[in-house]
Design a protein around this nucleic acid. Structure first.
Lengths: 182, 182
DNA sequence: ACCTGAACACCGTTCAAGT
DNA sequence: ACCTGAACACCGTTCAAGT
Protein backbone atom coordinates (compact mmCIF):
# COMPACT_ATOMS: atom_id res chain seq x y z
CA UNK A 1 0.00 0.00 0.00
CA UNK A 2 2.72 2.44 0.95
CA UNK A 3 5.46 3.23 -1.52
CA UNK A 4 8.61 2.29 0.39
CA UNK A 5 11.97 3.12 -1.12
CA UNK A 6 14.42 0.69 0.43
CA UNK A 7 13.75 -2.76 1.78
CA UNK A 8 15.49 -3.38 5.11
CA UNK A 9 15.99 -6.38 7.31
CA UNK A 10 13.92 -4.69 10.02
CA UNK A 11 11.01 -4.20 7.59
CA UNK A 12 11.13 -7.88 6.73
CA UNK A 13 11.16 -9.01 10.35
CA UNK A 14 8.30 -6.63 11.18
CA UNK A 15 6.21 -8.06 8.38
CA UNK A 16 7.10 -11.62 9.37
CA UNK A 17 6.12 -11.09 13.00
CA UNK A 18 2.82 -9.49 12.02
CA UNK A 19 2.07 -12.32 9.66
CA UNK A 20 2.90 -14.98 12.26
CA UNK A 21 0.72 -13.28 14.88
CA UNK A 22 -2.20 -12.89 12.50
CA UNK A 23 -2.13 -16.19 10.65
CA UNK A 24 0.21 -18.54 12.48
CA UNK A 25 3.67 -19.83 11.84
CA UNK A 26 2.50 -22.04 8.99
CA UNK A 27 1.46 -18.93 7.06
CA UNK A 28 5.00 -17.56 7.24
CA UNK A 29 6.36 -18.29 3.79
CA UNK A 30 8.97 -16.36 1.87
CA UNK A 31 6.31 -15.65 -0.71
CA UNK A 32 3.70 -14.39 1.75
CA UNK A 33 6.19 -12.15 3.55
CA UNK A 34 7.32 -10.73 0.22
CA UNK A 35 3.76 -10.08 -0.90
CA UNK A 36 3.02 -8.24 2.33
CA UNK A 37 5.96 -5.96 1.54
CA UNK A 38 4.98 -5.50 -2.09
CA UNK A 39 8.16 -7.10 -3.26
CA UNK A 40 9.19 -10.27 -5.04
CA UNK A 41 10.19 -13.31 -2.90
CA UNK A 42 13.74 -13.31 -4.21
CA UNK A 43 14.28 -9.81 -2.85
CA UNK A 44 14.27 -11.21 0.69
CA UNK A 45 17.28 -13.45 0.19
CA UNK A 46 19.79 -10.63 0.19
CA UNK A 47 18.58 -9.50 3.62
CA UNK A 48 17.86 -12.66 5.57
CA UNK A 49 19.87 -15.35 3.82
CA UNK A 50 17.16 -17.96 3.56
CA UNK A 51 14.04 -19.08 5.41
CA UNK A 52 16.01 -20.47 8.33
CA UNK A 53 17.70 -17.06 8.59
CA UNK A 54 14.32 -15.39 8.59
CA UNK A 55 13.14 -17.48 11.55
CA UNK A 56 16.43 -17.00 13.39
CA UNK A 57 16.04 -13.28 12.90
CA UNK A 58 12.59 -13.46 14.42
CA UNK A 59 13.86 -15.18 17.56
CA UNK A 60 16.78 -12.79 17.84
CA UNK A 61 14.37 -9.90 17.59
CA UNK A 62 12.05 -11.20 20.31
CA UNK A 63 15.04 -11.61 22.62
CA UNK A 64 16.42 -8.18 21.78
CA UNK A 65 13.03 -6.58 22.55
CA UNK A 66 12.98 -8.18 25.99
CA UNK A 67 13.14 -5.35 28.55
CA UNK A 68 15.97 -5.35 31.11
CA UNK A 69 14.85 -4.22 34.57
CA UNK A 70 16.39 -1.23 36.28
CA UNK A 71 19.51 -2.49 38.17
CA UNK A 72 18.60 -0.23 41.09
CA UNK A 73 15.52 -2.26 41.88
CA UNK A 74 15.60 -4.96 44.57
CA UNK A 75 16.84 -8.22 43.07
CA UNK A 76 13.59 -10.04 43.69
CA UNK A 77 11.69 -7.42 41.72
CA UNK A 78 14.18 -7.73 38.88
CA UNK A 79 13.67 -11.49 38.69
CA UNK A 80 9.92 -11.07 38.82
CA UNK A 81 10.04 -8.55 35.98
CA UNK A 82 12.04 -10.93 33.81
CA UNK A 83 9.48 -13.66 34.36
CA UNK A 84 6.56 -11.37 33.63
CA UNK A 85 8.26 -10.05 30.49
CA UNK A 86 8.88 -13.50 29.03
CA UNK A 87 5.32 -14.57 29.75
CA UNK A 88 4.04 -11.39 28.09
CA UNK A 89 6.10 -12.12 25.00
CA UNK A 90 4.77 -15.67 24.87
CA UNK A 91 1.19 -14.46 25.08
CA UNK A 92 1.76 -11.78 22.45
CA UNK A 93 3.50 -14.10 19.99
CA UNK A 94 2.38 -17.61 20.86
CA UNK A 95 3.25 -19.13 17.52
CA UNK A 96 6.75 -17.70 17.31
CA UNK A 97 7.50 -18.49 20.93
CA UNK A 98 7.86 -22.19 20.22
CA UNK A 99 10.98 -21.40 18.22
CA UNK A 100 12.64 -19.90 21.28
CA UNK A 101 12.87 -23.20 23.10
CA UNK A 102 13.96 -25.07 19.99
CA UNK A 103 16.85 -22.80 19.11
CA UNK A 104 20.10 -22.44 20.99
CA UNK A 105 20.15 -18.98 22.50
CA UNK A 106 23.61 -17.61 21.74
CA UNK A 107 22.42 -14.25 20.44
CA UNK A 108 23.43 -10.88 21.96
CA UNK A 109 19.83 -10.35 23.03
CA UNK A 110 19.85 -13.55 25.05
CA UNK A 111 23.08 -12.51 26.75
CA UNK A 112 21.66 -9.17 27.87
CA UNK A 113 18.86 -10.92 29.72
CA UNK A 114 21.12 -13.61 31.13
CA UNK A 115 23.60 -11.10 32.51
CA UNK A 116 20.82 -9.22 34.22
CA UNK A 117 19.59 -12.41 35.87
CA UNK A 118 23.14 -13.33 36.91
CA UNK A 119 23.51 -10.01 38.67
CA UNK A 120 20.14 -10.35 40.41
CA UNK A 121 21.12 -13.79 41.69
CA UNK A 122 24.47 -12.50 42.94
CA UNK A 123 22.70 -9.65 44.68
CA UNK A 124 20.38 -12.23 46.18
CA UNK A 125 23.30 -14.06 47.72
CA UNK A 126 23.59 -17.06 45.40
CA UNK A 127 27.21 -18.28 45.59
CA UNK A 128 29.13 -17.29 42.47
CA UNK A 129 29.80 -20.92 41.56
CA UNK A 130 26.07 -21.70 41.53
CA UNK A 131 24.93 -18.64 39.61
CA UNK A 132 25.05 -20.10 36.08
CA UNK A 133 23.31 -23.28 37.15
CA UNK A 134 20.57 -21.50 39.02
CA UNK A 135 20.06 -19.17 36.07
CA UNK A 136 19.73 -22.15 33.72
CA UNK A 137 17.17 -23.82 35.96
CA UNK A 138 15.15 -20.68 36.50
CA UNK A 139 15.10 -19.73 32.83
CA UNK A 140 14.33 -23.31 31.81
CA UNK A 141 11.33 -23.27 34.08
CA UNK A 142 10.11 -19.87 32.97
CA UNK A 143 10.61 -20.59 29.28
CA UNK A 144 8.88 -23.95 29.63
CA UNK A 145 6.05 -22.35 31.56
CA UNK A 146 5.61 -19.59 29.02
CA UNK A 147 5.74 -22.05 26.13
CA UNK A 148 3.13 -24.21 27.83
CA UNK A 149 0.95 -21.17 28.38
CA UNK A 150 1.35 -20.14 24.74
CA UNK A 151 0.55 -23.69 23.65
CA UNK A 152 -2.69 -23.71 25.62
CA UNK A 153 -1.66 -26.33 28.18
CA UNK A 154 -3.26 -24.42 31.03
CA UNK A 155 -7.05 -24.44 31.47
CA UNK A 156 -7.14 -20.63 31.33
CA UNK A 157 -5.22 -17.46 32.06
CA UNK A 158 -6.31 -17.23 35.69
CA UNK A 159 -5.02 -20.73 36.41
CA UNK A 160 -1.75 -19.87 34.69
CA UNK A 161 -1.40 -16.74 36.82
CA UNK A 162 -2.13 -18.66 40.02
CA UNK A 163 0.27 -21.45 39.08
CA UNK A 164 3.02 -18.97 38.30
CA UNK A 165 2.50 -17.14 41.58
CA UNK A 166 2.71 -20.48 43.38
CA UNK A 167 5.94 -21.27 41.55
CA UNK A 168 7.36 -17.87 42.47
CA UNK A 169 6.79 -18.69 46.12
CA UNK A 170 8.44 -22.07 45.69
CA UNK A 171 11.54 -20.64 44.14
CA UNK A 172 11.59 -17.77 46.56
CA UNK A 173 11.95 -20.23 49.42
CA UNK A 174 14.92 -21.84 47.74
CA UNK A 175 16.91 -18.70 47.14
CA UNK A 176 19.17 -17.60 49.99
CA UNK A 177 16.82 -14.98 51.41
CA UNK A 178 14.26 -17.69 52.05
CA UNK A 179 11.37 -15.27 51.92
CA UNK A 180 8.99 -14.82 49.01
CA UNK A 181 9.43 -15.14 45.24
CA UNK A 182 11.93 -14.59 42.54
CA UNK B 1 12.08 -53.90 0.82
CA UNK B 2 9.70 -56.26 2.56
CA UNK B 3 6.45 -57.21 0.88
CA UNK B 4 3.85 -56.07 3.39
CA UNK B 5 0.24 -56.98 2.80
CA UNK B 6 -1.78 -54.41 4.72
CA UNK B 7 -0.81 -50.89 5.59
CA UNK B 8 -1.65 -49.98 9.19
CA UNK B 9 -1.62 -46.81 11.20
CA UNK B 10 1.09 -48.30 13.41
CA UNK B 11 3.30 -48.99 10.37
CA UNK B 12 2.92 -45.41 9.28
CA UNK B 13 3.81 -44.00 12.70
CA UNK B 14 6.81 -46.33 12.95
CA UNK B 15 8.10 -45.14 9.61
CA UNK B 16 7.45 -41.51 10.50
CA UNK B 17 9.33 -41.75 13.79
CA UNK B 18 12.30 -43.46 12.15
CA UNK B 19 12.38 -40.84 9.44
CA UNK B 20 12.22 -37.98 11.96
CA UNK B 21 15.01 -39.48 14.06
CA UNK B 22 17.23 -40.07 11.06
CA UNK B 23 16.64 -36.93 9.04
CA UNK B 24 14.83 -34.43 11.23
CA UNK B 25 11.30 -33.16 11.38
CA UNK B 26 11.69 -31.19 8.17
CA UNK B 27 12.23 -34.44 6.29
CA UNK B 28 8.88 -35.76 7.46
CA UNK B 29 6.67 -35.29 4.43
CA UNK B 30 3.70 -37.34 3.39
CA UNK B 31 5.62 -38.28 0.29
CA UNK B 32 8.78 -39.37 2.10
CA UNK B 33 6.85 -41.44 4.65
CA UNK B 34 4.93 -43.10 1.83
CA UNK B 35 8.08 -43.88 -0.11
CA UNK B 36 9.64 -45.47 2.96
CA UNK B 37 6.63 -47.76 3.13
CA UNK B 38 6.67 -48.54 -0.58
CA UNK B 39 3.28 -46.99 -1.03
CA UNK B 40 1.77 -43.97 -2.73
CA UNK B 41 1.33 -40.76 -0.64
CA UNK B 42 -2.43 -40.83 -1.03
CA UNK B 43 -2.58 -44.20 0.71
CA UNK B 44 -1.70 -42.52 4.03
CA UNK B 45 -4.74 -40.29 4.13
CA UNK B 46 -7.15 -43.08 4.98
CA UNK B 47 -5.10 -43.95 8.07
CA UNK B 48 -3.95 -40.65 9.52
CA UNK B 49 -6.36 -38.09 8.12
CA UNK B 50 -3.82 -35.54 6.98
CA UNK B 51 -0.36 -34.32 7.88
CA UNK B 52 -1.55 -32.70 11.10
CA UNK B 53 -3.06 -36.05 12.02
CA UNK B 54 0.23 -37.75 11.30
CA UNK B 55 2.09 -35.44 13.69
CA UNK B 56 -0.61 -35.75 16.34
CA UNK B 57 -0.31 -39.50 16.05
CA UNK B 58 3.40 -39.24 16.64
CA UNK B 59 2.96 -37.25 19.86
CA UNK B 60 0.23 -39.58 21.04
CA UNK B 61 2.53 -42.51 20.42
CA UNK B 62 5.44 -41.03 22.35
CA UNK B 63 3.14 -40.41 25.31
CA UNK B 64 1.64 -43.87 25.12
CA UNK B 65 5.10 -45.44 25.11
CA UNK B 66 6.04 -43.59 28.30
CA UNK B 67 6.56 -46.23 31.02
CA UNK B 68 4.49 -46.01 34.21
CA UNK B 69 6.47 -46.87 37.33
CA UNK B 70 5.45 -49.72 39.62
CA UNK B 71 2.91 -48.29 42.12
CA UNK B 72 4.56 -50.34 44.89
CA UNK B 73 7.74 -48.27 44.69
CA UNK B 74 8.34 -45.39 47.11
CA UNK B 75 6.71 -42.24 45.75
CA UNK B 76 10.02 -40.41 45.36
CA UNK B 77 11.35 -43.18 43.17
CA UNK B 78 8.22 -43.06 41.06
CA UNK B 79 8.62 -39.33 40.45
CA UNK B 80 12.28 -39.79 39.65
CA UNK B 81 11.45 -42.50 37.13
CA UNK B 82 8.94 -40.26 35.39
CA UNK B 83 11.53 -37.53 35.04
CA UNK B 84 14.17 -39.90 33.74
CA UNK B 85 11.75 -41.45 31.26
CA UNK B 86 10.75 -38.12 29.76
CA UNK B 87 14.35 -37.03 29.44
CA UNK B 88 15.19 -40.33 27.76
CA UNK B 89 12.39 -39.81 25.26
CA UNK B 90 13.62 -36.31 24.52
CA UNK B 91 17.14 -37.54 23.90
CA UNK B 92 15.94 -40.40 21.73
CA UNK B 93 13.60 -38.26 19.62
CA UNK B 94 14.88 -34.69 19.90
CA UNK B 95 13.16 -33.43 16.79
CA UNK B 96 9.74 -34.82 17.59
CA UNK B 97 9.93 -33.76 21.22
CA UNK B 98 9.37 -30.13 20.35
CA UNK B 99 5.85 -31.03 19.28
CA UNK B 100 5.04 -32.28 22.77
CA UNK B 101 5.24 -28.84 24.33
CA UNK B 102 3.38 -27.22 21.47
CA UNK B 103 0.38 -29.52 21.54
CA UNK B 104 -2.27 -29.71 24.21
CA UNK B 105 -1.91 -33.03 25.97
CA UNK B 106 -5.43 -34.42 26.21
CA UNK B 107 -4.58 -37.88 24.92
CA UNK B 108 -5.12 -41.10 26.90
CA UNK B 109 -1.36 -41.59 27.05
CA UNK B 110 -0.91 -38.24 28.77
CA UNK B 111 -3.58 -39.12 31.30
CA UNK B 112 -1.87 -42.38 32.27
CA UNK B 113 1.29 -40.52 33.19
CA UNK B 114 -0.55 -37.71 34.94
CA UNK B 115 -2.58 -40.08 37.10
CA UNK B 116 0.57 -41.85 38.17
CA UNK B 117 2.17 -38.56 39.20
CA UNK B 118 -1.00 -37.53 41.05
CA UNK B 119 -0.86 -40.71 43.09
CA UNK B 120 2.82 -40.28 43.87
CA UNK B 121 2.17 -36.73 45.09
CA UNK B 122 -0.73 -37.89 47.27
CA UNK B 123 1.45 -40.64 48.71
CA UNK B 124 4.06 -37.97 49.35
CA UNK B 125 1.62 -35.99 51.46
CA UNK B 126 0.71 -33.19 49.07
CA UNK B 127 -2.75 -31.90 50.08
CA UNK B 128 -5.39 -33.12 47.64
CA UNK B 129 -6.30 -29.55 46.66
CA UNK B 130 -2.72 -28.82 45.62
CA UNK B 131 -2.08 -32.02 43.70
CA UNK B 132 -3.12 -30.81 40.21
CA UNK B 133 -1.20 -27.59 40.56
CA UNK B 134 1.96 -29.26 41.78
CA UNK B 135 1.72 -31.81 38.99
CA UNK B 136 1.38 -29.02 36.42
CA UNK B 137 4.43 -27.21 37.77
CA UNK B 138 6.55 -30.32 38.02
CA UNK B 139 5.64 -31.53 34.55
CA UNK B 140 6.10 -28.06 33.08
CA UNK B 141 9.59 -27.96 34.50
CA UNK B 142 10.51 -31.45 33.38
CA UNK B 143 9.06 -31.01 29.88
CA UNK B 144 10.80 -27.66 29.53
CA UNK B 145 14.04 -29.12 30.78
CA UNK B 146 13.84 -32.08 28.42
CA UNK B 147 12.94 -29.85 25.49
CA UNK B 148 15.88 -27.58 26.28
CA UNK B 149 18.15 -30.59 26.48
CA UNK B 150 16.84 -31.90 23.16
CA UNK B 151 17.28 -28.45 21.64
CA UNK B 152 20.91 -28.29 22.69
CA UNK B 153 20.56 -25.48 25.21
CA UNK B 154 22.86 -27.19 27.70
CA UNK B 155 26.62 -27.16 27.14
CA UNK B 156 26.72 -30.98 27.25
CA UNK B 157 25.10 -34.07 28.70
CA UNK B 158 27.09 -34.03 31.93
CA UNK B 159 26.00 -30.47 32.70
CA UNK B 160 22.41 -31.43 31.97
CA UNK B 161 22.66 -34.39 34.34
CA UNK B 162 24.18 -32.24 37.07
CA UNK B 163 21.57 -29.51 36.59
CA UNK B 164 18.76 -32.00 36.74
CA UNK B 165 20.11 -33.59 39.90
CA UNK B 166 20.35 -30.13 41.42
CA UNK B 167 16.75 -29.44 40.45
CA UNK B 168 15.63 -32.75 41.95
CA UNK B 169 17.11 -31.67 45.26
CA UNK B 170 15.39 -28.33 45.02
CA UNK B 171 12.00 -29.81 44.45
CA UNK B 172 12.63 -32.51 47.01
CA UNK B 173 12.98 -29.83 49.67
CA UNK B 174 9.66 -28.32 48.71
CA UNK B 175 7.62 -31.49 48.91
CA UNK B 176 6.19 -32.35 52.32
CA UNK B 177 8.86 -34.90 53.27
CA UNK B 178 11.43 -32.15 53.03
CA UNK B 179 14.24 -34.61 52.34
CA UNK B 180 15.81 -35.30 48.96
CA UNK B 181 14.41 -35.25 45.43
CA UNK B 182 11.25 -35.98 43.56
C1' DA C 1 -12.46 -51.03 1.89
C1' DC C 2 -8.20 -49.81 0.33
C1' DC C 3 -4.90 -48.12 -2.90
C1' DT C 4 -3.47 -45.55 -7.33
C1' DG C 5 -2.77 -41.86 -11.29
C1' DA C 6 -3.24 -37.60 -12.64
C1' DA C 7 -3.78 -33.02 -11.47
C1' DC C 8 -3.96 -28.45 -8.67
C1' DA C 9 -2.20 -24.79 -6.11
C1' DC C 10 1.49 -23.95 -3.49
C1' DC C 11 6.42 -24.13 -1.54
C1' DG C 12 11.93 -22.64 -1.17
C1' DT C 13 15.62 -21.57 -3.92
C1' DT C 14 18.81 -20.82 -8.26
C1' DC C 15 20.37 -18.19 -11.90
C1' DA C 16 20.84 -14.98 -15.34
C1' DA C 17 19.31 -10.60 -16.28
C1' DG C 18 17.95 -5.86 -15.58
C1' DT C 19 18.69 -1.04 -13.34
C1' DA D 1 24.02 -2.95 -4.81
C1' DC D 2 19.52 -4.28 -5.10
C1' DC D 3 15.54 -6.21 -7.24
C1' DT D 4 13.06 -9.11 -10.94
C1' DG D 5 11.42 -13.06 -14.31
C1' DA D 6 11.58 -17.42 -15.38
C1' DA D 7 12.45 -21.91 -14.00
C1' DC D 8 13.37 -26.22 -10.98
C1' DA D 9 12.36 -29.65 -7.78
C1' DC D 10 9.48 -30.24 -4.25
C1' DC D 11 5.20 -29.88 -1.16
C1' DG D 12 -0.05 -31.28 0.74
C1' DT D 13 -4.28 -32.54 -0.91
C1' DT D 14 -8.48 -33.61 -4.19
C1' DC D 15 -10.86 -36.50 -7.13
C1' DA D 16 -12.17 -39.97 -10.05
C1' DA D 17 -10.89 -44.41 -10.98
C1' DG D 18 -9.38 -49.10 -10.27
C1' DT D 19 -9.52 -53.72 -7.52
Amino acid sequence: MAARRKLTRADILDATLDLADESGLAAVTMRAVAERLGVTPMALYRHVGDKQGLLDGLVERLLADQPVPDPELPWRDRLRQHGAAIRATARRHPDVFGLLLARRAATPGARRTRDSVYQALRDGGVPEADVPRVERLLSTFVLGFAASEAGGRFPDGAVADADFAYAEQWFGQLLPGGGPPP
